[in-house]
């Protein structure tokens, strides 16, 4: 049983189809990295999988409430401490061990510091620790290593590996090498949507009137 199956997916950005005909499956223990030039629609595709946006065409099959999404913004409140931030998301997503996540991302020493007093890299680590406390099997990560130094990238790779070993899966969009040799790579360039008006329902105003 695969955690995520995408069939013939088409997604639109700015009212125009960006990529189309994308199909892949993701089983437990697997990681898939999306690549492609800027603006091809990696972020849009991830947001579709996370359920934040509707697909123009195709199907996304997965169990309900299985996605943990993380993007450029970490969803942290500057006025709350590290522990408070994590505990909030743990409660919202129903469970998850806060202490364990703090240890894994090496944040225990900063546990009582307000998030406002963290460096960019520390904030990013806290954002990734949030993924752990969601307790969800499918991680959907958009540029997860932005503003992380080399050591932190390694720690992040280890975190993903542990997640995969625990029966999880990860779908990522990134430019740099994460040191995850076992991850499959899907280049979106061949799936770039053909110009012109496709048959069927237009994706948005820009397609309906072009």
């Amino acid at each position: 049983m695969s955690l995520l199956a995408v069939h013939d997916l088409a997604v639109a950005r700015g009212g125009i189809r960006a990529v189309e005909g994308v199909s892949f499956t993701l089983d437990a223990g697997e990681a898939l990295i999306l690549r492609g030039p800027n603006g091809i629609g990696k972020t849009t595709l991830l947001r579709c999988v996370a359920g934040l946006q509707l697909a123009v065409d195709g199907r996304i099959e997965m169990a309900e409430d299985s996605v943990a999404y993380a993007a450029h913004a970490d969803g942290l409140k500057a006025a709350l401490t590290v522990t408070e931030n994590l505990r909030f998301w743990a409660q919202i997503f129903g469970g998850g061990n806060v202490e364990q996540a703090l240890t894994a991302m090496d944040l225990t020493a900063l546990a009582d510091r307000p998030a406002a007093a963290l460096s960019a890299g520390q904030k990013r680590r806290l954002g990734l620790a949030r993924l752990m406390v969601t307790g969800r099997p499918l991680w959907v990560l958009d540029e997860p290593t932005v503003s992380l130094d080399a050591a932190s990238v390694e720690r992040f790779a280890a975190l993903v590996r542990a997640h995969l070993a625990g029966g999880g899966a990860a779908l990522m969009a990134t430019h740099i090498d994460l040191g995850l040799g076992e991850a499959r790579v899907l280049d979106l360039t061949p799936y770039r949507a053909r110009p012109g008006r496709p048959p069927g329902r237009p994706a948005g105003f820009n397609e309906a009137f072009a």
Binding site: G51, A68, Y69, A71, A73, G75, I92
Partner: peptide
């Protein structure tokens, strides 16, 4: 504020 810091995205994917 929740929109700026991305919390709203995360709340939208939450079970609530």
């Amino acid at each position: 504020l929740d929109h700026e810091d991305g919390s709203l995205d995360l709340l939208a994917t939450a079970p609530i």
